[in-house]
């Protein structure tokens, strides 16, 4: 028995307004981005672009353009960062999940530490140290910075993924005659693979999007997509910035959908434990 009293109808007005504001906050900038990506001519005081087209897209996607080179650099750095993170997080995650380590909580927390300090302050000092080591402006230097940043996801999620693999499954393999390495690569790793995969995707996306560290350590020799975007928008080249942003958006959204499939509840429940 629903009855439409005026009072009840009135309560919908603030809710509707709140939802409207929320939608504007989320979709407003995205709409602006979308418009800029296809605008040929757009200047004050006009509310909408004066002319639409794809000529800037041609410039961005030209084979020898800065954008393509930056994209290649970005993807290379991201892949190397994933490899570096995995090299640390697979053994570390397994140890954290299986061995009775003293100071387990402290070790887990230590990986969170790089996130705890103001990043600009940290990266200025990192850049200074890298400069003396000759790592400034090299891919290796940027990969190192991204790896330290990515390790927290990588180690925490990987440890959770290994923790979610029932120990008796490993024991069964050992019992059947498999050595420790064989049972790890034959049983444990395949079963933890979805979680390890998800952590790699996180690291990949973080590296792809990372700006501050790349800026302090990499500029001017290394140009990644976020740096290109920054330079473009600083130079008033909003079309290039918008198109670059859209390019960055594609893997983010795509992988987020994949991660949702990979990260099962039993793994998520063990993150940080």
């Amino acid at each position: 028995m629903t009855s439409f009293t005026p009072a009840r109808t009135l309560t919908w007005i603030p809710r509707g307004l709140a939802l409207g504001v929320l939608a504007f906050v989320i979709f407003g900038p995205l709409t602006n981005l979308g418009l800029w990506a296809v605008a040929e001519k757009w200047y004050f005081p006009h509310t909408l672009p004066l002319q639409y087209g794809f000529s800037f897209w041609e410039r961005v996607f030209a084979p020898r353009s800065n954008a393509m080179a930056s994209l290649a650099t970005s993807v290379t750095i991201a892949l190397l960062t994933v490899a570096a993170c995995l090299a640390v997080s697979v053994p570390a995650g397994y140890a954290l999940a299986r061995l009775r380590l003293p100071w387990r909580g402290v070790i887990l927390l230590a990986f969170l530490l790089p996130q705890a300090f103001p990043s600009v302050a940290v990266y200025i000092n990192v850049a200074r140290i890298f400069y003396t080591l000759g790592l400034n402006g090299t891919v290796a230097g940027v990969v190192l910075v991204h790896t330290v940043h990515g390790l927290v996801f990588s180690v925490w999620i990987t440890a959770a993924a290994f923790g979610a693999v029932d120990r008796s499954l490993e024991e069964a393999a050992r019992d059947m005659g498999a050595g420790p390495l064989r049972s790890f690569f034959g049983i444990t790793l395949p079963l933890a693979a979805p979680g390890v995969m998800a952590s790699s995707i996180f690291v990949f996306l973080e590296s792809l999007d990372e700006f501050t560290g790349t800026y302090f350590v990499g500029v001017p020799d290394i140009s990644t997509l976020p740096l290109l975007m920054f330079n473009a928008s600083m130079g008033g080249n909003f079309q290039i910035a918008a198109i670059t942003a859209l390019i960055l958006l594609v893997p983010s959204v795509g992988f987020m959908l994949v991660i949702e499939r990979f990260l099962k509840a039993d793994v998520l429940a063990k993150v940080g434990h």
């Binding site: 008796s168 050992r174 019992d175 079963l191």
Partner: peptide, 28 residues
């Protein structure tokens, strides 16, 4: 170590490997 003993255990939790088929489990 366990792999150097000629014993075979049947676990309370079955401990079957979920990424393998029945035949692969038995044949491992």
């Amino acid at each position: 170590p366990p792999e150097r003993r000629d014993t075979a255990m049947v676990f309370q939790s079955y401990a079957l490997w979920p990424h393998m088929t029945t035949a692969q489990n038995i044949g491992y």
